[in-house]
Nucleic acid binder design. Structure first.
Lengths: 371, 371
DNA sequence: CTGAGTTGCTGAAAGGTTTCAAGAAGATTG
DNA sequence: CAATCTTCTTGAAACCTTTCAGCAACTCAG
């Protein structure tokens, strides 16, 4: 679906490490499989008990400085690495939080991820990123995996917000926060941006500029954001006294640049009399692909086609024609979601919340001076 | 360092889930903390032994269909979720592989990550992504964490390839493959693209177009790629009979769009007589930022300033002025790296390899028709 | 009907850590 | 100096799976 714009072909060379002498090569043929030193070995080497080593690890303040030094020396010389599986099994809690992203290739989500990481680090937790890549099977696999790992909690921008798997996690003890989607549900918190309003802003702007034949480019229609933004667009039309059916829908298979190009191809192929004069895209990747394709097929933007994107990713402003877009507070979204998750897993009086942010239209050249 | 182009400010609304009735709210004040059903409970419910449940999980073919059905029914009704920590502790192996990225916000690395995922999935493993974000401390933290987790292996695009931590992992049993860096070292495999050649290609192209005052934009100089690409640039100058000191170096603090804009600011501020007529950037993000800033300050690209990027990310072609760039086989890089890792952890006769791919110059408008 | 081979299931041990009640040694008080 | 408190350290139990030797029951050939 999403693909490199050219097949990955390349010539390659293979070398053994130049420094590998005969001996060293022979020596590492089989990995030494040296039984990694455990807490037990450290205790023996330092001449203390198991419990003391554990204390050095987890409550250093209760062990006397001299003992602690001995233990730390032993750990260093043996190359001790704590076995986190065993720790977690016994202690019952994980120090990890996961963000299951809809599309890691979309800078919007990596910005959200940055916000998540900042909040998590501030609380002493680490974040693992997972990429469902808009594939429901992968999403399901990752949810299973994360539940089995007993992570502290899962942040997710879901493909299918009604997935039964998604509902089950919280009931079984893994807190879940839905990011970039409002969910009306007792099971999780959610942090979202008002996508209906966003769609409305975009279309209102285009209507104000005098556009009449407007296209909506987005899909698949299983993704909540795609639906809401379209519904917002329709609502704007209604408010302006036009039938929502006037919205020309171009459904795409994913929210990627490549799909945007495909839509551009279809759109540019229409006779000028029927071709829309403006397009609102469900995200910036689609908009960028659409823009690129239309320009290369000879359409002028915004004169022949005005384009509005969504997300206002960093590349939107740097596009061939700087893109008008609906901005969302990306990092804040992630930070807030992580904070809700942390609250849920530490505060016994936690109450689920739905936080909604308000989007903002950023007008640039791709719609300016039209008509 | 990398930041939203506007501070994250937004108005927000907070709601409790609208469906939350009094009772349900009260009911979930404290999480039920229902002792998650384990293999033991399942065994009891199905009227079989522990071992049999484990067999259903791990070797379903050895248990009779009728027993298996009973066990599966019990698992479903109890909502059994395997505890991966315990599994891993006992079985001694993880089904997870991690890719520690230099910058998750750079589409180049997410493309590499896609290749990694494809290869891993084909082998039945899952991938966790971690983002060091060009921060050495974070990289170190993640390496520690992954080692403690006893993941199957670590793929990494390092900030500092001489980090002692990086060297230690393989010795202790966690295989490491370095991605997008060639490492001359007995401890790991590596998969790279010849960055020196890439730098050479870029500069040779600019020289051929008649440019003489050429800038190199990149940094920090601790990152291997930055160094190699610069060295390639110098080599091209030498080959053309010019002193490598002619290369005007603009050092940046990171490889981001924002830093590229900063470099653009500096560059555009120079008097036209001393200003370079061409810039080669260490990656496309820098190039895009540079391009954007220079254009907005009134420079024409390529007439006043030709620009060459590196990586040929998808957005390069869609930029204000389509970007000439040095292409690397992104997904293939990731796929190959993952395959090497899998070989290392399954094949006892594994020998470390250094695979090197060859980059390719893609010429677009940002350098075309110059001078 | 016996002995050997198969198939399916069992139960205990093991894996590396944390936790905790309890003990030892040393310091302080009356 | 005895009694009480502190400060450190100890050792065994517990966390949940997987593994594996062994057992029971059944099949089949001779």
């Amino acid at each position: 679906m999403a693909a490199d714009n050219a097949p990955d072909q390349a010539s390659s060379t293979v070398n053994r490490p130049s420094g590998s002498r005969k001996e060293s090569t022979g020596g590492r043929r089989r990995k030494a499989k040296q039984h990694a030193a455990g807490v037990k070995a450290v205790a023996a080497a330092a001449g203390v008990s198991l419990g003391t080593v554990s204390n050095v690890l987890n409550r250093p303040e209760v062990v006397s400085p001299v003992t602690r030094a001995k233990v730390e020396a032993a750990m260093a010389s043996l190359g001790f690495v704590r076995n986190e599986s065993a720790r977690q099994l016994r202690a019952g809690s994980s120090r990890i939080l996961a963000y299951l992203m809809l599309d890691a290739g979309n800078p919007f989500f990596t910005d959200v991820a940055k916000g998540v990481e900042d909040a998590a680090r501030a609380a002493g937790l680490s974040v693992f990123l997972c990429n469902s890549n808009e594939d429901a099977d992968r999403e399901a696999d990752y949810l299973d995996l994360l539940e089995q790992q007993r992570v502290q909690g899962v942040l997710i921008t879901p493909i299918d917000q009604n997935s039964s798997r998604l509902r089950k996690l919280p009931a079984r003890g893994t807190p879940v926060v839905v990011v970039d989607r409002a969910i009306d549900d007792d099971e999780h918190c959610s942090v979202a941006v008002n996508d209906i309003l966003g769609g409305e802003l975009a279309i209102a702007h285009l209507l104000e500029l005098g556009h009449d034949r407007i296209a909506y480019v987005g899909g698949p229609n299983t993704i909540g954001q795609v639906i809401d933004r379209r519904d917002g667009a329709r609502r704007a039309l209604r408010k302006a006294g036009k039938a929502p059916e006037n919205l020309i829908e171009l459904t795409t298979g994913a929210l990627t640049v490549a799909e945007g190009r495909g839509a551009g191809q279809r759109l540019a192929g229409l006779p000028a009399t029927r071709r829309p004069t403006a397009a609102f895209c469900a995200n910036d990747l689609l908009a960028l692909g659409l823009l690129q394709q239309c320009v290369s097929l000879g359409l002028r933007v915004p004169e022949d086609l005005a384009i509005v994107g969504y997300d206002d990713i960093e590349f939107a402003a740097a596009a061939a024609v700087p893109l008008t877009s609906v901005r969302q507070p990306r990092q804040l979204l992630g930070r807030t979601a992580a904070e809700l998750l942390l609250d849920e897993s530490s505060n016994p009086d936690h109450e689920h919340q739905r936080v909604t942010f308000t989007p903002e239209l950023v007008v640039r050249t791709s719609t300016r001076g039209t008509l």
